[in-house]
Design a protein around this nucleic acid. Structure first.
Lengths: 125, 125
DNA sequence: CCCGTACGCTTGGTATGCCAATCACTTCGC
DNA sequence: GCGAAGTGATTGGCATACCAAGCGTACGGG
C-alpha cells in the first residue's frame, strides 16, 4: 500500500493524449477552449497533467475533438479496457450482481427478483 | 414550517441510481463509505444529487457495488449508452447463466427462480 | 523598427469536491 | 426508562477544479 513517492511527472496518459489529439486536429488551445467552453488556461494545465478534469470538462473535450468519451475515460484510468464482456464474466460470479446489472429489468422487478432469490437461496448456516 | 420545495426532486438518476443499487446490495452509507474510501457524508450528498462526484469517486462506487463503470457514467450523462441491443442480449444471458451456475441453489429453486425471472423480464412486445 | 496578432503558460481568485465531526432519529438489550 | 449502536443528514473547513486577466515569446506586414 505504499504510496508512490513519485517526483516524476510522467503524465503521458490522459493529458498527453488530449494534447496529441488537439494538435492532430490542428487546433490551438484557445480554439479548443472556444469549442469546449473551457478556458485555455485550464486546458493547458490538464494537458500537462497538472489537474484532473471533471466529467463535464472531459465530455466537452471528447465532444469537441470527435473522440469517444470511453476512449478518454480509458486514458483517465477508469475503464481500462474492460468492456461489457469482462463485466459479464465478472457478474457470472454472483447471481445478485447479474440481476442488478440486468437492463431488461425495471427497478421494481429487480427488487422483487432479488427478494425471491434471497428467499430461495440456501441460507448460510 | 411545512415548506417543501419539491422542484428539487430531480436528481437525474445518477444519485438515485447509486442509492438504489446500494440498497439492493444491502449496504448502509457507512459500509459503502468503508468500501469506497469515500466519506458517508459525501456519499449521502451524491446520492441526493447535491454534488457531482469526480471520476475517482465514481470509479470507487462502481467498483464497490460491482457495477460497470460505463453504467454509472451513462447515468452521469457521459455516454449515451447506446449499446442497447448488444448489452441487453449479453446481460440477459448473464443473468440466466448466473442462476444456472449459482451453487447456493438446489435444482427446484433454480427452476423456480428462472421462471420468475422470465416472467418479470421485459419482453419485447 | 513597431505594431498587431497568434501562441502557450502563469497567477490570483471563486466555485465546488470531499472529509471529520456531529446531529436527530430508531432500535435494540438491560 | 436509559444507554449503546445503528441509520441518514448537516455543517465547517481544507483541497482542488476552473476561469479572467495578464505575461513572454514568435511571427508577420506596414
Amino acid at each position: 500500500m505504499a504510496e508512490e513517492p513519485e517526483s516524476d511527472r510522467q503524465q503521458t496518459g490522459l493529458g498527453g493524449y488530449i494534447r496529441l489529439q488537439r494538435q492532430l486536429a490542428d487546433l490551438s488551445l484557445r480554439q479548443l477552449a472556444d469549442l469546449t467552453k473551457v478556458s485555455n488556461a485550464y486546458l493547458s494545465q490538464v494537458e500537462r497533467g497538472l489537474h484532473q478534469p471533471s466529467l463535464r470538462v472531459l465530455r466537452s473535450i471528447a465532444d469537441a475533438l470527435n473522440l469517444s468519451a470511453d476512449t478518454l475515460l480509458a486514458k483517465a484510468g477508469m475503464t481500462s479496457g474492460r468492456t461489457g464482456r469482462d463485466a459479464a464474466a465478472e457478474a457470472e460470479y454472483t447471481t445478485e450482481a447479474a440481476i442488478r446489472n440486468d437492463p431488461e429489468l425495471g427497478p421494481e422487478e429487480r427488487e422483487t427478483l432479488l427478494r425471491v432469490y434471497r428467499s430461495l437461496r440456501r441460507s448460510p448456516r
